[in-house]
Design a protein around this nucleic acid. Structure first.
Lengths: 353, 353
DNA sequence: CGGAGTTCCGTTAACGTTTACGGTTCCGGA
DNA sequence: TCCGGAACCGTAAACGTTAACGGAACTCCG
């Protein structure tokens, strides 16, 4: 139990060979006969060898280059994701991660090129948002064939060979929205509208050439809905296209008799929540998603990889009362950038005041 | 920007002294004159010296011993906290943390002794649950005087000299409960009951000699409440004492006309949530609390300490629809214990299936 | 048969820090 | 004067891994 872990030297000694050979064998480096390689691998297994990461980093000083392929984004969602990734990278004790951001201007614009560039740059790992999994799949597959692990954020790319995925649990997310809507409406009769801005519509947006068109269309459609369906009692609006829907509801004078649940949290939505027009919003926790994604990738690249490759996060529920709590979390992202040196940091920071 | 970080050797060279002296100066070790010590400290600051943690760990192999002082707990809350701590400890790249669990059988039983034992054992840090902050405060103060940082979980111990605190944001937690209650009740009139099982009552329980008494009392009181206040429409029950309240509501035949919000998530509560008797429960995320606590402490002990010492977590909302999601998370704690060795782990685990 | 090229393997110097040990210098007391 | 002991400082060996170099054995071809 408490015996010191096996080292390369231990393996070498018990095999009557040298450290160099053991090292080459364990790393598939040339210059080792198949016979010795097998013996080394077997012995490593027997002794339960696990590499000492501190020694490895100290010796090679090789940094892990990780490409972060995300969207510019009209909202702060992706900014938050990137912040989470940066935070997590900074909090890694061995300061051996180097982030390369390849940010696409908008949905579906240059994503494949960005992935290709990351592969060409021979990064050690990729975190990406597969907005259209079908088109990105071959690239992800190419990456993992080049032994570059890929972690998807927010959306999955199934059957792509990706290493892992970090996302809000869609079932839990939808279920909580449904439960809330049911409880909010109480026993009152009425129908509930659900907007779906899925990938199909996204490609639609591409045809229109701009995201603006989608928003206008969202306004138009929901305005029409509000006027036709007078029995509408609730509305569940997904994605950031909630603003045009809200505007439409306002213009149609139905805002106060509708129970509205949205997703995400961005500045344009804040006044609606504060006024109570939006009953609740389902927060996708971009920061946490970014953190977990980097963590997953880094642990894998460091031979840690014991954790599940599918991370499902629970969404947060934001309402009027806890709105400020979440807003203050968002704004404190660029804080704590003062370069404390070791001496200061070591001192106990106490709350004697 | 990209220049290599300063080392002890750099400081020594630019000062015309030796590595040993620099090291002693930076660590307050004896055998260095005040003059040289000042010069070293100044130069370290100038060069922006930050210790290389990999080299440090490799050289000294000293592990950080951390004492986890929590409760046995009738519910799984503290088990979850401990699991979170263990998980986080295992995921630290430099495997230099050693956990010592000092678990008290029940509330307020041997907590001071446990803290004293931890201090006497000269651990490097302590994670504790200050059930009664007033009585524990002097011990926490003694710990930090002995340069042992203390992190509180779930409850704060103000003015105790503790290093930090990890907890659910109480304001956000209460606010979401209030908001939900308001929305759930809709326009219907009626009063809302709130149970408070705070420390005062806890000490009461001590007088009674057993926790059982508190539960019985909770039943009695709420039963009485239900019979007297016929206008009661909602109920917000905190802590794990929600079960007797629910039983009372059931026996008083008011369960179906009450909107009940509870806190925490434990097995006895599950059927009530599933049946809809409990509209929602506010989940305190014990696992996350444990993780953050260990993280805070470890970062501090590793001269990282850049993060805020006050970690406020947002609670999760559990309702019928997402109940299974949370239950499955709880049960998967003891998973992934298979001892993968480095060779296997390095291989890409792909989802080609 | 000798040299060139290969394949396999041992040796060794780093990496930055900790720690134990040895060596100065200086001062007080015998 | 000489010795003992502080007080201060330099030196060097670890820690486990990586990476570069060198050497032995063996093959191949002129």
């Amino acid at each position: 139990m408490g015996k010191p872990p096996a080292t390369l030297g231990d393996i070498a000694k018990s095999l009557g060979t040298s450290i160099g050979t053991v090292h080459r064998a364990l790393h598939d480096h040339p210059g080792v006969s198949p016979a010795t390689k097998a013996r080394v691998l077997q012995m490593a297994r027997n002794l339960g060898y696990r590499p000492n990461l501190a020694a490895r980093y100290l010796s090679s000083k090789k940094t892990l280059r990780i490409s972060v392929n995300t969207l510019q984004g009209t909202t702060s969602f992706w900014d938050e994701v990137r912040t989470g990734i940066r935070e997590e990278a900074a909090s890694i004790l061995l300061e051996n991660v180097e982030l390369e951001f390849r940010t696409c201007p908008s949905l579906g614009e240059g994503e494949e090129e960005a992935l290709e560039a990351a592969i060409a740059a021979k990064v050690d790992g990729i975190i990406t948002f597969p907005s259209r999994p079908e088109t990105l799949r071959p690239w992800i597959r190419r990456a993992s064939r080049s032994h570059i692990p890929v972690v998807c954020v927010a959306t999955d790319a199934p059957n792509s060979g990706r290493l892992g995925i970090v996302a809000i649990d869609t079932l839990a997310s939808g279920a909580i929205a449904a439960d809330l809507m049911g409880r909010f409406l109480g026993g009152r009769a009425g129908s509930v509208g659900i907007t779906v801005f899925d990938m199909g519509i996204t490609e639609h947006a591409e045809k229109y050439g701009a995201f603006e068109s989608t928003l206008k269309e969202a306004y138009r459609k929901s305005r029409k809905l509000f006027e036709e369906r007078t029995d509408l009692a609730g509305m569940y609006v997904t994605t950031e296209a909630s603003i045009p829907v809200l505007s439409a509801a306002c213009d149609a004078k139905v805002l106060d008799r509708l129970t509205i649940i949205t997703t995400d949290l961005f500045s344009d939505l804040v006044p609606y929540i504060r006024s109570g027009a939006v009953a609740a919003t389902i927060y996708q926790r971009p920061r946490a998603q970014g953190q977990m994604a980097l963590r997953l990738l880094h642990e894998f690249l460091s031979e840690g990889g014991r954790r599940s490759n599918q991370v499902s996060l629970a969404p947060h529920l934001v309402m009027r009362g806890n709105l400020d709590f979440f807003l203050s979390r968002q704004s404190q992202e660029s804080a704590s950038k003062n370069g404390q040196n070791g001496q200061e940091a070591r001192r106990l920071v106490q709350d004697l005041a």
